[in-house]
Design a protein around this nucleic acid. Sequence first.
DNA 1: TTCCAGGCGTATC
DNA 2: GATACGCATGGA
Length: 268
Amino acid sequence: MIITDFFVNNDGIRLKQPDLDLDQTLDCGQAFRWTRVSSDTYHGFFLDRELTVSECDEKGVFLLHGVSEKEFLDVWYDYFDLGTDYGQIKERLSEDETLSAAVKAYSGTRILRQDPWETVSSFIISQNNNIPRIKLIISRLCEHYGGYPSFSQMKGESVESLGYLRAGFRAKYIVDAVERFSGGEISPEKIRSLDTDAARDELMKIKGVGPKVADCALLFGFYKLDAFPKDVWVKRVMAEYYPQGLPACTRGIEGIAQQYLFQYIRRS
DNA sequence: TTCCAGGCGTATC
DNA sequence: GATACGCATGGA
């Protein structure tokens, strides 16, 4: 079944996807390399790919500027997880009263399928930090390397050599992550193959990776939809609405529920 | 000046 | 296992 209608134009790919909002998906704290260039347009990156995407005058219709059909199907279709039916997911989550309101308010939220290493290192940088500065540090890293570096490219980095990032106490954590990934002690393929609890334990071997950073990486970088990152905002939601724990309708997709709740509590 | 930011490591009980 | 505290940096 085709979840997302698209057609090829001379100016790029045009797609119809009512369950997508650029602000809610690209500027919601799950990805840090997207920039809002105007009210309806974002510019950003996935690995070494660059994209400008606009919402058209017709709501729920988007233009992926200059993208070929092949690039769309090879890269962006998966990145935006366009094969997943968010309508069905939202219907299910709406069994719960609070989630129903959150889903309604942020109905264009999607979980992106990002790169494992990029999310691990990005969320190490995110700890005790604010989003504008997280983006700034990551943009310095990407400028230095001419794109987001792989762990192999970063092999040999030290706290001193990363000084230009101005990442503060997080630099030593990045170095530890680089060493473990580039040394083969931790591999993205292995983490992908593990269940979420085992994968979390694996990631938490890295200095500076605790439960929250690990769950963010698992959810946003390894597509483990049952990972449930508990940051300060989500802890507030849990205390206020779910003192007994999450409702049954979230089972298996706790991470998606988290993303609706995160935005709901944070922007209200 | 002080406080805060998508937390975590360490010390202490 | 629970709780308290320091941590680099930069914007408000």
